[in-house]
Design a protein around this nucleic acid. Structure first.
Lengths: 236, 236
DNA sequence: CATGGACAACTGCCATAGCAGTTGGCAGCG
DNA sequence: CGCTGCCAACTGCTATGGCAGTTGTCCATG
């Protein structure tokens, strides 16, 4: 079959940033994948992507190698590179992996988080409270993003930051897969976020880890990417 | 200061494999880092590494970008790339991360492992038993490697396999850092391995996860990369 | 002696060109 | 009509060359 699949071309890279072309291509491609364009199975050729982005093939190639390491594309040598299939099952697995990783991240953060970060978290919590009352899911998503990113950075662990960045990308993919508005339990999420901050403020790694892990797993369940708890979940 | 640090050159890449040069350079460099040559702080220039390996600079560059994603090197744009500092503290963090990841891997494996893999694990257990009685640490290390790699593969999750591959590399680094023979508790490790296989055979994800995580954390403690449990560890 | 500035020797980064292996289709033979 | 073999158009992969930014050294100047 020919490539008749009405492919929407990628806009050329804006030269707004000072980042390397390889880095920009990496982010752009990852974004394009989780946003839904470039669906699973789509063939990605270094040259075509390069011309669409208005750059050379080398940076694209680097980006593809990194995406391959993230598991978002698979490439058969001398055959081609395609967007990896990420079915509901694998999405669930990645969610469980993310839950575990967010857990240790939260534990590490609890050990070394400073007053400034705690203050920032308090501010984010206020925004979350307002957003929950107003039902502003968009603002909530943004605050949620900052919330977790801040905790990740608080660990000071680059490996954790990078891995969780990739994993959260998959989370976005899951939301885009679910047609329409995904179900959420706003008040419960807010309470959990409060509990996590409380544990962080107490510098209690074990408690922080348990609460964070529970929070992620529960949100995955209400979002439908994980089935209801096959065995009674631990109460935090 | 000049580069007078008696640098031992890397042997050119053998063309034994059919792997791409970039992949081979990636593995070679990672190996060289965890083995102790290319110590932390060593400057790594694409060109010099390329000439030492007898290849071009492009594959080396890809390898460096991937190593950067693993956190093993850091590169300042237009300034240079150096081997990342991985102190005892970060080694401990990475260990805790690995414990969590090995845990979920073991849980996933428990859900879907087949009879063949279980049989292979039984064979490995026998080798471990023999090695423990004979005190053959080298054979034990090899068996241990296969043991965990087999469980990783049993999950069928590429992200898990890749991440744990990188993490285990850091584990080797920890052993090479510790001068002389690192302390180990062979009988205890054997018993834990048996318990893990039993949980896998029972297809009990929660039990398998708890046991695997405990196993990793304990081995990290006896190896000295983690301090003795600051708070009472859960009994599996 | 101290200081500043220019030049050379790096560095990472990117574009171009071409290699070898794979695939799809089409002509030609049975 | 069906099958085989070849050829062109891909693919990923690597080498080469060169650009721009950084650094360290050395000489000239105060």
């Amino acid at each position: 079959m020919a490539a008749e699949t009405a492919r929407q071309r990628l806009a050329p890279l804006a030269e707004e940033d000072t980042l390397s072309l390889g880095e920009r291509a990496y982010r752009r491609l990852r974004e394009s994948i989780v946003q839904g364009m470039l669906p699973a199975g789509r063939k990605i050729s270094e040259r075509s992507i390069a011309t669409e982005l208005g750059i050379s093939a080398q940076p694209v190639r680097e980006a593809l190698r990194r995406l391959e390491q993230d598991g978002m594309v698979v490439t058969l040598p001398r055959r081609g590179t395609v967007v990896a299939e990420v079915g509901p099952a694998q999405l669930g697995e990645l969610g469980r992996i993310r839950a575990a990783l967010e857990g240790v991240a939260c534990a590490l953060a609890a050990e070394r988080i400073d007053a400034d970060s705690l203050a920032s978290l308090a501010v984010i919590l206020k925004r979350m409270t307002a957003g929950t009352e107003a039902g502003d899911t968009e603002a909530l998503d943004e605050a949620n993003e900052e919330f977790h990113a801040l905790i990740h950075r608080a660990t000071g662990n680059l490996f954790l930051i990078r891995s969780l960045g990739s994993l959260r990308a998959y989370d976005h993919l899951g939301r885009h897969r679910a047609i329409g508005s995904t179900p959420r339990d706003l008040p419960k999420a807010l309470a959990e976020h409060r509990g996590i901050v409380a544990a962080l403020r107490r510098h209690d790694p074990a408690l922080a880890e348990a609460r964070m892990r529970h929070h992620i797993l529960r949100s995955l369940v209400t979002n439908g990417v994980l089935p209801p708890p096959p065995r009674p979940m631990r109460r935090p």
